[in-house]
Design a binder for these strands. Sequence first.
DNA 1: ACAAAACATAAATTAAAGTTTATATAATAA
DNA 2: TTATTATATAAACTTTAATTTATGTTTTGT
Lengths: 119, 119
Amino acid sequence: MEILGIFKALSDETRLRILKLLEGGELCVCDIVAALDTSQPGASFHLCVLKEAGLIRDRKEGRWTHYRLEDSDMFRRFLLLSVMERAEGGVFEKDRVRLGVFLKGKEEGCKGLRPNEGR
Amino acid sequence: MEILGIFKALSDETRLRILKLLEGGELCVCDIVAALDTSQPGASFHLCVLKEAGLIRDRKEGRWTHYRLEDSDMFRRFLLLSVMERAEGGVFEKDRVRLGVFLKGKEEGCKGLRPNEGR
DNA sequence: ACAAAACATAAATTAAAGTTTATATAATAA
DNA sequence: TTATTATATAAACTTTAATTTATGTTTTGT
């Protein structure tokens, strides 16, 4: 049953955190690992569950995999919106901060490099 | 986090079956046990999870506890509606049939009894 | 061709959730 | 008051899901 898989995917805090992060736009796995401060296989596992449930999409580019929200149908769109609105607490804010720091660090590393020369 | 509890409550097939049954109106625990063809403590456990998540309400009357859907707020109403619409498969139909048979049996047992004399 | 980075997958472990079995409680009927 | 019915709760057990640790794959940089 499709709907059961969707609710199961949404019934885990780590996965709600990932969805909230993706609200800000596409992210690669290492961004998510940095933001959640968790293990890389752990993040991959949860991303897989979310993808199977049709809540996120992936896009491969070189050695990176970028994930973004999949809200092409009404039901999923509503659920994702609900997560954005109703998922609250310090965890999400902290994730957002860690992500910011990490992304900033990435930018710094690229200073002075020409396109396609970065990490 | 409230939303997490709601999704957790919805991430189990037995509980979706209970919600679907309650679509038809209030039921007592023994109705649900009969419809699901499961154990009474099992049904009580799942009813408890659904109640804690605010998806159903209970009403005590004599030795019975009657449960019904709680759709007083928009979000829960939408989720419950989604379950009604999107939960599909033979299980639900079978539950409905078993419930019908059981309720019919109850009625029969009451034939010829004055009010408050039957089960 | 070799090394390193980004991610995925698999096996082993741990933790959480669901089921079963037994017992308790509360209300009604006899 | 004793027995019975409807339900709840608790403890033991089983199943499922999540985490950890180790390794594999692919792509890119040197």
